[in-house]
């Protein structure tokens, strides 16, 4: 049958729509035509795997920042501008510092911190979290701004409020653990009673000891647990049917790595725990049961579903 296409480029010209009307007519009447057409049509609905151009450009820029060019780069902005800008920033900083009695705390990758509030309440901050409050009128106004994960041990007193991007927790004196993330908000009550509401002030739940609530993608989940203190304070993060996305975020905050999750389903749930002491062991305990393989390259961890 190939002999019919004496011209090496016949099929290529057909694909490109370059056949003469006579050639096309004859070809369409041949018995092979339909088979070729189906292959060509089928091939055109295939797509190459997604290429995230922006993300990879950012990655490229990262790598380039360490490279030197052969050419000399002429600065368009004169140097003195930078000194002026720096002065302005410092001046503004001092101004705000003097004017504001708010205190803020932040933890970096893998860091944990204990913050004692003016009334002796304690906040245990887990990695990659921030906490801010106003010192001056603390006694009358116990309000904290918070993101990340923390365990709160609150002294009895006036109302104590934790405000996060995802919702508000209000208590009178109790112990509870909060995690915030992107479209993720979890509160576990370890002692006493807490009231959880979302940002539009709708009441989500009133939790008593051993009860937990979670908002994930605007869906509410409730469950019970049995721990005196969150396990992460003792060097282990544990999860109960937690979306994989949040588990990975916790791993990233703990070990200062970045996961490539392009090929896996982040909505899968994970129940279990990982240690804070051994990264390899942590990777193994999280991903092996989920049947996900991983490979390391510098700070990047590439995840791949096994089927």
């Amino acid at each position: 049958m190939e002999e019919k296409y004496i011209d090496d480029a016949f099929l290529a010209r057909w694909v490109a729509g370059e056949l003469t009307p006579e050639e096309l007519d004859a070809f369409q009447n041949s018995k092979d035509y339909l088979e070729f057409k189906r292959i060509n049509d089928g091939a055109q609905i295939l797509e190459a795997p997604k290429f995230d151009q922006q993300a990879s450009f950012i990655r490229l820029q990262d790598e380039l920042s360490g490279e030197t060019q052969d050419a000399k780069i002429v600065k368009i902005i004169p140097r003195w501008i930078y000194s002026v800008a720096a002065t302005v920033v410092v001046a503004a900083g001092i101004f705000f510092f003097l004017n504001n009695s708010s205190s803020s705390f932040e933890t970096g990758f893998g860091e944990q911190k204990t913050v004692t509030l003016p009334d002796n309440s304690k906040v245990y901050l887990n990695a990659k979290s921030t906490l801010a409050f106003n010192k001056r009128d603390w006694e009358s106004n116990r309000i904290l701004k918070f993101s990340g994960e923390a365990f709160f041990d609150v002294e009895k007193g006036t109302s104590f409020k934790v405000v996060t991007n995802q919702g508000v927790i209000e208590v009178l004196g109790t112990e509870f653990n909060v995690i915030t993330g992107e479209k993720f908000f979890e509160v576990r009550c370890h002692e006493g009673k807490v009231r959880v509401s979302n940002n539009s002030d709708e009441n989500l739940a009133t939790l008593t000891q051993g009860k937990a609530v979670r908002m994930h993608d605007n869906k509410e989940e409730n469950w019970n647990f049995n721990q005196e203190k969150p396990t992460w304070i003792k060097g282990e993060s544990s999860f109960t049917k937690t979306p994989l996305k949040q588990v990975i975020k916790t791993l990233e905050g703990r070990y200062d790595v970045v996961f490539d999750t392009k090929t896996i389903d982040l909505n899968r749930r994970f129940t279990g725990s990982f240690t804070h002491k051994d990264f390899n062991l942590a990777l193994k305990t999280v991903f092996t049961p989920l049947n996900i393989s991983y490979s390391k390259k510098g700070k990047m961890i590439y995840l791949k579903g096994k089927n």
């Binding site: 480029a9 099929l11 290529a12 694909v15 292959i39 091939a43 055109q44 295939l46």
Partner: peptide
């Protein structure tokens, strides 16, 4: 088929002549 590149452009990318591109295309289909 996927990137919708013309034969002339494919020739440039792969560093062969347009004729050779057309030939490979036809062979691939066969």
């Amino acid at each position: 088929r996927i990137d919708n590149k013309k034969y002339s452009e494919i020739a440039e990318i792969t560093g062969i002549t347009i004729k050779a591109v057309e030939k490979r295309m036809s062979q691939a289909l066969i």
